[in-house]
Amino acid sequence: MSDKVSSAIQKLWTSYSKNTPQSLQLIDAYLVFILFSGVFQFVHCVLVGTFPYNAFLSGFISTVGSFVLAANLRIQTNPDNAGEFKSISPERAFAEFVFCNIVLHFFVVNFIG
């Protein structure tokens, strides 16, 4: 059973690393990074309490927002979806990603207190 699972995971991993474009892998790494940043902040909040509530909220919301933006970037730059986003080049998607991130960071820093 465990052999099967591990072999399935191995197969998934090799096909992922073979078939996924490098830029998407970079985004995936970034997504995992964001995910764990948020998870650790949440764990801290559960363990310690919400005392600097603004700080917790802004930190957590910033991870959530970054995750959403990065996921959108991944969707728009995926060559498989190119048909759906004909008018949006990967560069334009990246520019939008940068712009939205700046706006998000401005609000997060404004709220952090």
């Binding site: 790494a29 995992v32 764990f36 650790f40």
Partner: peptide, 8 residues
């Protein structure tokens, strides 16, 4: 919280 940076 800095661990994900190492990972990234």
């Amino acid at each position: 919280v800095l661990i994900p940076w190492v990972f990234l």
